[in-house]
Design a protein around this nucleic acid. Structure first.
Ligand SMILES: Nc1ncnc2c1ncn2[C@@H]1O[C@H](COP(=O)(O)OP(=O)(O)OP(=O)(O)O)[C@@H](O)[C@H]1O
Length: 712
DNA sequence: GGAAGAGGACTTTTT
DNA sequence: GTCCTCTTCC
């Protein structure tokens, strides 16, 4: 099994073969930390350690899957599951839920469920949700939880700095969660920690449950996570953590750099290993990255040497506005693709999610295949959330947030007033409203459409319950058929309806997939119906990676989502003051330095080629343009790299372009026939607005491959 | 009393 | 674009 060590350098070997006791690998970007973790897991497995006694934790689902893949690559035939902190804690809590006053199939609320609940609690207490946005209040509650403060703790009442709305709402919020048999993301960590702290038997049991703990991206753990880790490792101290203080980019989630720095003190006898070769990037890219990060003052210095040669210079792309930025990036990518570059080796990063829109539009027009990584999209889509809310109500009738969401979907005549009457009547009967309706009980004072609506909804619930939620797909289909959902929702016959239908189909497929695997999965979910197990799984999946993982597309993602990944060609867009670094982080040194770390992360993802991009103006939400100053990061690139002229020049080659005039009929491969509404610009930059059946599109003539339709 | 459509406010980063 | 509230019709 020495082959497991073959492609490792000496310090890596030392880390991988380190047997027992605390181990800290602290090293810069691209130095092979992740390789250490995955190889170490393989090494342990190869030496007879039971995979169930290893707990490997990463930060995102994506990273967990990727790393599991690498272990299986190194050790064919083996199967191992790596977790995120949240999924591991959720799984533990499901076993211990009754002790905490929850049933084991409790619901997990995502951020929008949380805000929904907060909103209704605020309204009940006469707090205007417009004056204090639920999401803001929720964010503050979240950061309290991430520093370990519950409303029942004395600190909560003593602290002066807590907003009065938070002060009023936090405790009712926790009570409501419990009444709904629900936890939010932060509860998953905090409640598990409290369970260990307050319960010596549980603590002892969990401290013996694993023999080896391995944690990637340790610089981004928060206090709660570290406390959990300490307790899990308290008996054997076989704890291997890996990280890079310069890549700490989650302080908004409570991450504390202190964790990785104080690790050797917290675990006396820690073996500290440094990795000092960068295997990922060209020397040019690495030198730039190090110049960038060297300007931070709060820093733990490390050595990092390039292994590769100088490589190509860094490129700069400066555009007049956001859409030109997208087009220029698209042009460049198109050329790379034409040279035979694998689209999966190209990535576009942005600081803020909304920047992806403009890029997407341009890529669509240019026909560049792309994929949005970590897109919240799918599970946040209206129709998907509606359907999941229905499943949620079936599985957990106490969940009022989901109940309120799907009660009147599709519209069945139930409004504000009938809703209130139902709640009051159900409360009088001492039943959750969902249960009240399921029994077919009547709400006095409600007649006509609303009355029928209640009865109908109750009947669907009853029928679903009658089938004991045995298959996810069956339960969904029941809802779809009884409500005629698709027809109700897709009435307008427009563009988006097709999407909606597809999303529903996608969910059904996903559900069917889960049903098929239920037999092997069921042991992971004790006391769960298939439906509640499905929900348990889905509510921790915030992305839809797997569905499209193999598509040959350019990858679009936030810088945060790029952590731990690598690509041959990287474009960082939106390098403008206020955007990246973001204005909300520019007030203090810590904020600015974190932006710089974030930029460092972005830069160090690139293996061969890096492009820094900015626009001179950008459209605001009102549609007007705002001038944008180049980001200091962009300027540093310019300076460090000698101002380097303009490596980005249009090539005046390709032959003639067809000319179009307003009113011409044209045919497009994908959008069909349409008429030209507007012609913008000249020559290679000509854009046309075309009215197709599905709506108006703006296309670049050069790439749209439009055909004139004569005699229309 | 409800539904559908118009108009306003708001967009950092994630589990 | 999206989410939410307010208005206008049924
Ligand atoms: N000893 C080695 N020899 C050659 N290549 C290596 C070696 N170790 C790692 N690599 C390669 O270097 C690249 C970076 O490795 P890895 O992702 O493990 O680094 P990392 O330290 O986790 O990076 P980051 O912190 O930036 O995410 C990968 O392509 C990996 O395959």
């Amino acid at each position: 099994m020495d082959y497991l060590l073959e492609d490792l350098n000496d310090p890596q070997k030392e880390a991988v073969t380190h047997r027992d006791g605390p181990l800290l690998v602290i090293a810069g970007a691209g130095s092979g930390k992740t390789r250490v973790i995955t190889r170490r897991i393989a090494w342990l497995l190869a030496h007879g350690v039971d995979p169930r006694r290893i707990l490997g934790v990463t930060f995102t689902n994506k990273a967990a899957r990727e790393m599991a893949g690498r272990v299986e690559e190194a050790l064919p035939g083996v199967r191992i599951r790596l977790s995120t902190f949240h999924s591991a804690c959720a799984a533990f809590l499901r076993r211990s839920a009754p002790a905490l006053g929850f049933s084991s199939d409790f619901t997990i609320y995502d951020t929008s469920d949380r805000d929904q609940l907060l909103k209704s609690l605020m309204k009940e207490r006469g707090v205007d949700p417009k004056e204090h946005r639920p999401s803001q209040i929720g964010a503050q509650i979240s950061s309290l939880k991430n520093s370990g403060v519950l409303p029942t703790d004395p600190e909560f009442h003593q602290s002066e700095s807590i907003h009065y709305v938070v002060r009023r709402i936090y405790e009712p919020y926790q009570e409501a969660l419990r009444a709904n048999n629900a936890m939010d993301f932060d509860d998953l960590l905090l409640k598990f920690l409290r369970l260990l702290q307050n319960n010596p038997e549980e603590k002892a049991a969990y401290a013996r449950r694993f023999d080896y703990l391995l944690i990637d991206e340790f610089q981004d753990t928060n206090k709660i996570q570290y406390d959990i880790v300490k307790l899990l490792a308290s008996e054997h101290k076989n704890l291997c953590v890996v990280g890079d203080p310069d890549q700490s980019i989650y302080s908004f989630r409570g991450a504390v750099l202190g964790n990785i720095l104080s690790f050797p003190r917290d675990f006396p006898g820690t073996k500290v290993i440094r990795l000092e070769n960068n295997y990922r990037s060209t020397a040019n890219i690495l030198a730039f990255a190090q110049g960038v990060i060297a300007r931070n003052r709060l820093r733990y210095e490390k050595v990092l040497r390039p292994v590769h040669g100088e490589g190509e210079p860094i490129g700069f792309i400066e555009a007049a506005d956001g859409s030109e930025e997208g087009t220029l990036v698209g042009h460049k990518i198109r050329r790379l693709l034409d040279q035979g570059v694998d689209p999966r080796e190209i990535a576009v990063f942005y600081r803020a999610r909304f920047l992806s829109r403009e890029i997407e539009t341009c890529f669509k027009n240019l026909g560049i295949p792309y994929r949005l990584v970590g897109d919240l999209g799918f599970f946040q889509r209206r129709e998907v959330k509606d359907l999941l809310a229905f499943l949620q109500v079936c599985a957990n009738p106490l969940d009022r947030v989901s109940f309120e969401r799907c009660l009147n979907v599709p519209p069945r005549g139930i409004g504000q007033v009938s809703r209130r009457l139902l709640m009051e009547e159900a409360a009088r009967e001492g039943l959750p409203p969902a249960e009240f309706l399921r029994r077919g009980m009547i709400v006095p004072g409600v007649r006509g459409k609303a009355k029928r609506g209640f009865l109908e909804f109750g009947k669907i619930l009853e029928e679903a319950a009658g089938r004991s939620l045995e298959t996810v797909q069956g339960t969904l289909r029941l809802f779809l058929e009884r409500t005629n959902y698709l027809n109700e929702i897709c009435r307008t016959g427009s563009w988006e309806d097709v999407d909606r239908e597809e999303n529903v189909g996608e969910l059904l497929r996903d559900a069917a997939e889960f049903d098929k695997r239920w037999e092997e999965l069921s042991e992971q979910y004790p006391d769960h119906s298939p439906v509640s197990a499905y929900l348990a799984q889905v509510s921790l999946m915030t992305d839809q990676e797997e569905r499209q993982a193999d598509s040959a597309s350019v990858q679009l993602m936030t810088v945060h989502a790029s952590k731990g990944l690598e690509f041959d060609h990287v474009f960082i867009v939106g390098l403008e003051e206020g955007l990246f670094p973001h204005s909300r982080s520019m007030d203090d040194l810590e904020g600015l330095e974190e932006e710089r770390r974030l930029f460092y992360v972005a830069v160090t993802r690139a293996k061969k080629r890096l492009f820094l991009c900015r626009a001179e103006r950008r459209r605001g939400f009102d549609g007007g343009f705002h001038p944008q100053q180049p980001s200091s990061f962009f300027q540093e690139g310019r300076q460090q790299l000698g101002g380097g002229g303009d490596p980005w020049v249009y090539e005046e080659d390709s032959g003639e372009l067809p000319e179009f005039a307003v009113g011409d009929w044209v045919r497009h491969a994908r959008f069909g026939e349409g008429s030209i509404q507007t012609v913008i610009g000249r020559g290679r930059n000509t854009k046309v607005e075309i009215l197709f059946q599905g709506g108006i599109r703006t296309l670049l003539v050069e790439y749209a491959k439009l055909e004139k339709v004569e005699g229309a």
